[in-house]
Design a protein around this nucleic acid. Sequence first.
DNA 1: CGATCTGTTGACTGTTATCAACTCCGGTGG
DNA 2: CCACCGGAGTTGATAACAGTCAACAGATCG
Lengths: 266, 266
Amino acid sequence: MQVGFAFSKLADRLNSVSDLSDDDVELLAAMPGTVKHFGTHHHVLRRGDDTSHCCLLLQGYSCWRDDEGSGGQIVSIQVPGDVPDLSTIHGSRITCNLVTLGPAVVIFVPHAFFREISEQSPALLRSLLKLMLIDTSMLRNWVVNLGSRDALTRVAHLLCEIAMRLRAVGLNKDFQMPLPFTQSDLAAACGISAVHANRTIQELRRSGLLQWQAKTITIADWNGLVRLAEFSPEYLGLRHQFTDEFRLEPSPPQFHARNPVGVSSP
Amino acid sequence: MQVGFAFSKLADRLNSVSDLSDDDVELLAAMPGTVKHFGTHHHVLRRGDDTSHCCLLLQGYSCWRDDEGSGGQIVSIQVPGDVPDLSTIHGSRITCNLVTLGPAVVIFVPHAFFREISEQSPALLRSLLKLMLIDTSMLRNWVVNLGSRDALTRVAHLLCEIAMRLRAVGLNKDFQMPLPFTQSDLAAACGISAVHANRTIQELRRSGLLQWQAKTITIADWNGLVRLAEFSPEYLGLRHQFTDEFRLEPSPPQFHARNPVGVSSP
DNA sequence: CGATCTGTTGACTGTTATCAACTCCGGTGG
DNA sequence: CCACCGGAGTTGATAACAGTCAACAGATCG
């Protein structure tokens, strides 16, 4: 990952929620920052930190994790292009730990840069605000998930969400994506025990919905997974071109799926 | 409730998170709006609405409720002084239903008012931003709650939070507060069944932690409840004067509290 | 090549949901 | 005034779900 292209990750993300003009992309291209590589389960930010930078995730996954007596509950997960601490632009202390899930690459971008581009382009300001609103929306959705669905459905929902978000920033082209999560990570995100997470994944595998090996997940039956999870992507605030494209996939993904699962004809 | 004093509810709320200057209060006093009374379980806003007003809750409780197939999961709860849809100032569609819990009084305030006072007072802008950040923080905390605590602890935590938030806006002086929630409401908020909510409340009563009758809750043992719930109020973003005051209460609460509640002596 | 982390399995326990019945209460209409 | 009704709270029995403990296999990494 070259520093020079880091801005394009942010551009992809902004473009997934609103139309980005060429001028705006040009503004983004001036993004300064310091790139840093992290191993798995490393802290990017710690509760109480008070920096003058935002983290833009370039590669891999990260999460906000509450480590205060809650058994390490994962509160939200970020994919490349996300800026986990975007809301600290206007100054406020970090209240959770930002931890990598698998190896990750992050670029630290000065708050000032975001403030500047917000002043120079009302459209960018609106897009950044929208990213923050979407964060809240995803959080609300996750409350619904934890509060009203069982383990199997929660896991399925999380995987649907991640797949869709990756897709929106140009990754996960063929229902196959790297997912270096530990089963314990998954458990921490879904509020279940690691043992139960394991059994839940096995059930998903057994039902032929997905494969998950060598830190790579392959969704074998997207429609089935979506149906099981009762997943509807509106809350992600993505432009229709992204959700539509994904929803319409009948589901003829990987290597030996002879008879396409899903809608039959018309 | 007179329209003329509606602004003071917002002032109380803002004052609970940051110091409010006299000038700022004066700006707030010009707040226009339309007051509306609601019965219990009535819709204030519906998913998909797109208004040019914010709701300021003056009396009673409201909640964001997801009614799409999730069995009516309650995502967050508001107390008087809260502005549930503050984040729509910059325009964005409502994605949940805003429902009253018990009778409630709401004032609809034009977006424009919030934008104006934000321009005229940087301090007010910061306070309003802080309110939004706190909303997110509460949401994160609720994810932790649902994901990592059992029914008893969840209910206890919710009650602690509500008590503290009421306190911060000048209500709930003596550990006694109106709580017109249905047990089913409580269940929907905590992600448990109504039957189990009932049993959980009974256990809280049996342990002598609280009483709950005639739509009024009396916390009999604040310290005990806090300990059970593992409640720590930092995430509410309240100024220390409010949390300190409340935390130090030894626990001699309710109706016949002869000796003034508060700090005794060093 | 041993240490450690991750995934897997079985047996058991504990928590919570579900179903069904019944009470209590306030309101409403006969 | 009383009969009736619906909503809310309560209870017990049962079943589904998920947590815990313990052991072990396989991978990974110094």
